[in-house]
Design a protein around this nucleic acid. Structure first.
Lengths: 117, 117
DNA sequence: CCGGGGTGTCAGTCTCATCTGACAGGGGGT
DNA sequence: ACCCCCTGTCAGATGAGACTGACACCCCGG
């Protein structure tokens, strides 16, 4: 994965994806090796549809990938695994990404209203 | 700032703090230099109480610091500035932090219920 | 005394992510 | 036929966070 997630939108998607205890635990669990949805639901003791939603979120952020495989017995199983990412986060990185996001506009007027710094 | 935010709680606080377009823009704005609340509210065109809340969140996460100063004219002004942080985020880091967070417990039973990987 | 700029805090509203239970399938063994 | 395991999706309840307007308060300058 890119060190710099480029656009603010993308960065935001990754951050919101990670900002959840459940999703952190999911990623943690997947570092141990890939797993399919129902299996993971049992392991993490959480509702399957719920886990499903979280996995979708993580996949949309590009942090995990899921592949629907047809097992030898013919049934479908969806395996997920982590994408080895490395995200460096500093104020400047944020500053860069935020530009792709700012509906800022300069001071309304001012006329030397502000104090010194 | 630490490269590894240590506890899962702490990591989560930082992540949830960053997972907001407003707060990203706030940090971006503060990289340009410190500013006080009302001033920043004008610059970013947002409600002051709202900005106030976001700043509190960021401060709680240790990403910015605020100092209440008494200006030469005697009035109080609260300046905020970014804490130069550097956060490295990888699956393994998450795995480490998640341990301080897991109410996991192994499989309910199993008995070889799962498929091979 | 009044206006202007600042901080801090509050109750109330509203939007949105989360979470649950249930359903419709598909496929395989017994 | 029945049971078991899997995937995918949905309507609805719940809750947490975002957001607003208004207030109390401070200090100064005209």
């Amino acid at each position: 994965m890119d060190q710099a997630p480029s656009s603010g939108e993308e960065l935001l998607r990754v951050l919101t994806a990670l900002a959840s205890p459940h999703r952190l635990r999911i990623i943690a669990a997947l570092t141990e090796g890939r797993a399919y949805v129902s299996q993971l639901a049992r392991r993490l003791r959480m509702n399957r549809p719920l886990l499903y939603m979280h996995l979708q979120r993580l996949e949309a952020a590009g942090l995990v990938v899921g592949t629907l495989e047809t097992a030898p017995d013919g049934s479908s199983v969806k395996y997920f695994e982590v994408v080895p990412f490395a995200l460096g986060l500093t104020p400047d990185v944020i500053r860069g990404a935020a530009q792709t996001l700012e509906p800022d506009g300069p001071e309304p007027d001012g006329s030397g209203k502000d104090r010194d710094t």
